[in-house]
Simulated assay, not measured.
Amino acid sequence: MQNDETSAGPRLLGPADVRRLAAELDLRPTKTLGQNFVIDPNTVRRIVRVAGVGADDVVVEVGPGLGSLTLALLPVVARVAAVEVDPALAARLPATVAEYAPGVADRLEVVPGDALRVSALPGPAPTALVANLPYNVSVPVLLHLLQTFPSLRRALVMVQKEVADRLAAPPGSRTYGVPSVKAAWYATVSPAGSVGRNVFWPAPNVDSGLVLLQRRPSGRDPAERAAVFAVVDAAFAQRRKGLRAALSGWAGSATAAETVLAAAGVDPRARGEQLTVDDFARIAAARPKIDISGDS
């Protein structure tokens, strides 16, 4: 028997609910779409709590699936825009919310489509991203949404544990790399806990991690992003090399790279993994000020 909705919160999806809904849809979760559905109510409650969202927040959720996290978010926030790439799941979600949380069903807006292609959302601008991101596209989706929606003040995402470690890694650590720097361009990033594989159906072969991102208050010039990211990509494409060599192609030659690095106040012998996002920004900003046209 399913529990009735109470003042303590909505009815949330447990293992039996998830399997029933999947059976109704004749759903067979696919790795291609990164479909691993949360079956533990305590986990989604924890995600909402750690996300720190409240009554004024408009949340974008990516990959709501059968609605486990959606049902935990709706009573807490003003609105949820749920972006779902699977047409069958997108079509079923409003009915699930109407069944399990009828009192807040009007707060849901389902957005069918690929989160990597989303350029606008209906209704008010989103203030927070809270999502169990598909493992196979988690970093591209996160970066795309942070770039597309400057209104996002915070994000709490559940991703593969290895990806969580990379996103939150500090400079100089073994896992620090391109995702770490690019996420830091937008926000301060911190680990927010681990999630075991047994809270999912089907259970993945790896554990998951929560990552909390807080948008930098001062923001950054969006026009600089492409230039900075180009430096980051070049530096980590050959991460074992010092920056003088790693950035030679980007700058036009090793000599030109050294000149730019000196102007930016960065040691040419350093490696990309030692630099902060601000270091990369200084390198990108220094290049237009240096005449490197004569180098080849």
Rank of each mutant, 00 (worst) to 15 (best):
S190V: 15
L93A: 03
T255G: 15
A169Q: 06
A184S: 14
R11M: 10
G67Y: 00
G52S: 11
V277A: 08
R11S: 15
V211Q: 03
A16W: 06
P191D: 02
L261P: 07
T30K: 15
S119D: 15
Q147T: 13
I290M: 10
V59L: 07
V157N: 10
A262F: 13
D267W: 09
E99W: 13
L129V: 07
V38N: 12
D106R: 12
V85K: 01
A120D: 14
R46K: 15
V97P: 11
V195Y: 12
Y100G: 01
A22N: 13
L210T: 09
D233L: 09
S68A: 14
P179F: 04
L167Q: 04
V118L: 09
G14S: 02
G252W: 00
T43F: 06
T259R: 15
P122Y: 04
A98V: 05
G65S: 05
T259G: 10
G252L: 01
R197G: 09
H144D: 04
S138G: 05
P268S: 11
V232Y: 13
R215C: 07
E109Q: 13
A183F: 00
A286V: 00
D165H: 09
A256M: 01
S7E: 14
K182H: 05
I283C: 11
V178Q: 02
A187N: 03
R45G: 06
K161V: 04
T188G: 00
L210I: 08
W250S: 00
A22Y: 08
K31H: 13
W185I: 01
A101L: 11
P268L: 10
L275H: 07
A285K: 12
L89K: 05
K289N: 13
F200A: 05
F149D: 01
V97N: 00
V76H: 02
L247A: 02
P268A: 05
V59P: 05
A98N: 10
D4A: 14
R92Q: 07
V141D: 04
V195N: 09
V260A: 00
R11A: 13
A125R: 15
I283F: 06
L12M: 11
P126W: 01
R28L: 10
E109I: 11
R215F: 13
T70I: 03
L212Q: 12
R92S: 06
P171F: 08
A128N: 12
D207E: 14
P140M: 00
L167V: 02
A285N: 05
